[in-house]
Simulated scan of single mutants.
Amino acid sequence: MSRSFAVTGARIFDGQDWTENRALLVDQGLVTGLVPATDLPDGIERIDAGGALLVPGFVDLQVNGGGGVLFNDRPEPDAIEAICAAHARFGTTALLVTLITDTPEIRTAAIAAGRAARQADVPGFLGLHLEGPHLSLARKGVHDPSLIRPMQADDLDAHLACASFFDAVLATVAPENVTLEQVAALTRAGITVSLGHTDADYETIATYALAGARMVTHLFNAMSPLGSREPGTVGAALDLGTLHAGIIADGYHVDPVSMSVALRAKAGPGRIFIVTDAMSTIGSDQQSFTLNGRTILRKDGRLTAADGTLAGADIDMISSVRFAHQTLDLPLEEALRMASAYPADAIGLSARKGRLLPGLDADFLLLTTELEMIATYIGGEAVFSA
C-alpha cells in the first residue's frame, strides 16, 4: 500500500485529546502525523471531512457473527470476511471473531478458517476469541451444557498451536475447568486469558490472575456476583488492577446504574471496555437463528432463547458508544476510549490499534456530531461510506 493522503476539515480525537484545525496524515496505511492544515506537503491528496468528527476505529474483542452469519454455523474464511464487513458499517475496524462453545471438530474448522482469513488479509480481522468449552456448568448461560468440559492436553495443544497465526488470540475459560498450569502455558504463548462463565470466588480469581489471566469476559454476566461477604468474580474484576473487563453496553445485559457504579469502582491500570457480544443479526434483517440446536429470537433489541436466557447481543459498536455517552453520561472521549484504546490495551495491541498516533495503523472513523456513521477506514482504505 503506497497511498498518501491528508484528512482535513475535521475535529480530531487521537485517543488522548481533541485537536482543532489540524489534518490527519496517512501514508502506506499508517498514521504519520497530525499537522496544521496550513503545513500540508505540496501536492498531497486531500479528503475534506466537512466538519465531521474523526476518531479512532473501534476494537471489538467479542463478535460471534454479523451480516446474517453466525461463526459457529459457518466456520469458514468467507464467513469471517462477511462478519468483518458487517461490523465495519458500524465503526469496528478491528475485531476478534468469536467461537462459542462447540465440538472439537468445529473448533478445528474455525482455526483453519481464521488462518485462511489471516493469510488473505481480511480487513478488520485480528484473530479468534475461543469462548469455551472450558467453562462452568453453573454459569453456562446459553452455552450448550453437553459440550462443556475440562481442558485436556489436546485442547491446550490446539490453543497453543494457533497462537502465532494471528495478531491476537483470546481464550475465555473458567477456573472450574482449566488449571493454573494451563493458564500459565496459554499466557506464555501470547494468548490473552479471560475468566468468564464462572462461579469462582474472589480468592480463586486472584490466584488465576497471578497465573496470567488478564481479563474478565462480559462483566456481571455469567459470573459470581459481588456480595456482602463474598466479592465473587465481579468484585475481583473491579478490585484487581491487573484485570481488564469487557462489558456489554446495551442496557439489557447490565443495568445502567450497575455499569456506572462499576466504572467508578474499577481499580487500574486495567480498564472496563466495550464489547458487543454481537450475533448474526447485526447488519441484517434476520429475526431468528439457531445456536447449538436452540432457536434464538430477536425482539426489541434483545436476543433470547425460548426460556428467556440472553443469547449474545443485538447491538453494534457505534450504538454502544452512544449508549455510554448519552445514557451513562460519560464524556464522549471516555466512551470512545472504551471502544478503541482500552480494548487494544487489554490484548496488548496498543502499539498498533486504538489511537491515532504516528506509526499506528490508520484505522479511523468519520462521524457526525450526533454520532452517526459517515465513513470507516481500515489501514488507510475506505471500507464503508454512508
Rank of each mutant, 00 (worst) to 15 (best):
V275E: 00
I272G: 07
F289K: 00
G312Q: 12
A335N: 12
N292R: 10
A375V: 10
L349R: 15
F273L: 08
G293Q: 01
H325M: 03
I347P: 13
F323V: 13
A351V: 09
L371W: 01
L328M: 08
V321I: 10
R337C: 08
A278R: 06
L328G: 10
F273V: 08
F289L: 00
M338F: 13
A306P: 01
G359A: 13
I318V: 15
V321K: 07
L330E: 03
G312R: 10
D345Q: 15
K299P: 09
P269A: 09
P358H: 13
G270V: 09
D345F: 10
F289T: 00
T327F: 05
A382F: 07
L332F: 07
A344K: 02
E381V: 14
S340K: 06
E381R: 15
E372I: 09
E370M: 06
T369R: 15
R294S: 00
I274Q: 07
R337Y: 03
H325F: 06
L330V: 02
T309G: 00
S288T: 09
R271Q: 15
A324W: 12
M279Y: 04
V321F: 08
Q287H: 05
A305E: 03
D277L: 04
N292L: 03
M317N: 04
Q326Y: 10
M317S: 07
L336M: 07
P343V: 08
A362F: 11
T276D: 05
V383T: 11
G268I: 05
D345N: 14
P343M: 09
D363W: 06
I374K: 15
M338C: 10
R355P: 12
K299F: 11
L365S: 08
A311G: 01
E334A: 10
M279Q: 07
A375W: 11
T281M: 01
G379S: 04
T369L: 11
A346Y: 04
P269Q: 08
D361L: 13
P269R: 08
G268W: 05
G354H: 02
S280I: 02
A311Y: 00
R302M: 10
Q286H: 00
L310Q: 07
G312A: 14
Q286L: 13
R302F: 01
T281A: 04
I374V: 15
A382K: 15
A278S: 15
M317W: 03
L336V: 09
E381N: 14
A362P: 13
Q326L: 14
I315V: 15
I318N: 10
G283Q: 08
M279E: 05
G301S: 06
G268H: 05
G308L: 03
M317D: 04
Y342V: 03
G379L: 04
D307E: 00
L303D: 01
D345L: 13
M338S: 12
R271V: 05
L303Y: 01
I274G: 06
A362L: 10
P358E: 13
F364Y: 15
Q287A: 12
A305L: 14
I347C: 14
Q287P: 01
L365D: 09
L303W: 01
L328Y: 11
R352K: 15
I272P: 06
L297Y: 14
T376A: 01
I378H: 02
R352I: 06
F323P: 14
L297I: 12
L349H: 10
F364Q: 11
K353E: 01
A311E: 01
D277H: 03
L360I: 04
R302K: 14
L365C: 07
Y342N: 04
G270L: 07
